[in-house]
């Protein structure tokens, strides 16, 4: 795609802005900032990826993956406001997921050990793990708030933190995985996923594109489950004080 053709895509932004002005949504500034940021970010990433692909050095791949995990943890951590130390726990969960996924994909030679494969597939699984982490924390906040009586009842009967909050953990892990599982059920019928669409537009064989998409869908499901379970295990104690009372959450 030429830069001239790319500039025509601004028509979509113009349409959105006009709708915002017409309906007095007051979103023009946000749309402008979003447009500029996304364009600059994506172009920069394009150049960075080009450099990394050319150099093919593991240190650059590791650096990019670290940035991805850090940004994802920071962003998902916003859902856990009031939980001290939640961000490094999210980073640990997403990091473990990424290591496990890559170990399987590379170890079983499902993908080639080149940045062209590692970086995009990692980006998608880390992004999905970020969404799952945010969903998990949202559900947990709601669970703990609405089941305070139940949790305190168990504490009164001498339960440990884990025993008292176990049902809430289970429900939150389950809820955080539902969008990924639902997506898996309807993929290809309701929406054509981004990766597959991109490959087809770039001229790849559709069947080949579908194969990679299947890989991604399955990887998403595993990463959702692993991230959510690890996060629940490393963070459940944050809902309690050191002396096993329910911790008051600061907003």
């Amino acid at each position: 795609m030429s830069y001239v053709a790319l500039s025509f895509t601004l028509i979509f932004v113009m349409i959105t802005m006009l709708v915002s002005m017409w309906q007095k949504l007051d979103l023009e500034k946000d749309i402008a900032i979003g447009t500029i940021r996304s364009a600059i970010q994506l172009l920069l990433v394009g150049y960075v990826l080009m450099f990394v692909f050319k150099s093919n050095h593991p240190i650059f791949i590791l650096a990019i993956l670290s940035v991805m995990v850090s940004v994802a943890s920071w962003n998902a951590g916003k859902r856990g406001k009031g939980l001290r130390g939640i961000r490094w726990r999210i980073a640990l969960s997403i990091g473990c997921t990424e290591v496990l996924m890559m170990a399987l994909l590379l170890g079983l030679q499902i993908i080639e050990a080149t940045p062209q494969y590692i970086i995009p597939i990692s980006g998608m699984t880390i992004g999905n793990a970020m969404v799952v982490s945010g969903l998990y924390l949202n559900h947990m906040k709601r669970e703990v708030e609405s089941n305070k009586g139940e949790i305190e009842t168990l504490l009164c009967l001498g339960a440990s933190a884990r025993q008292a909050i176990q049902d809430s953990l289970k429900r939150s892990v389950k809820s955080s995985m539902i969008p990924t599982i639902d997506g898996m059920k309807t993929v290809g019928l309701v929406q054509l996923p981004g990766m597959m669409t991109g490959m087809i537009v770039a001229g790849a064989d559709p069947v080949e594109a579908v194969r990679y998409q299947i890989l991604i869908v399955f990887a998403f499901t595993a990463s959702a489950a692993i991230t959510s379970i690890i996060l629940s295990l490393v963070s459940y104690r944050l809902w309690f004080t050191k002396d096993l009372r329910m911790a008051p959450l600061r907003d």
Binding site: T153, L155, L157, G158, A159, D243, L244
Partner: peptide, 15 residues
């Protein structure tokens, strides 16, 4: 330990 404490001193709430 709070768990041991609560096994000995148990609270039953109104609700």
């Amino acid at each position: 330990d709070p768990k041991e404490w609560r096994k000995k001193i148990c609270y039953v709430s109104q609700q």
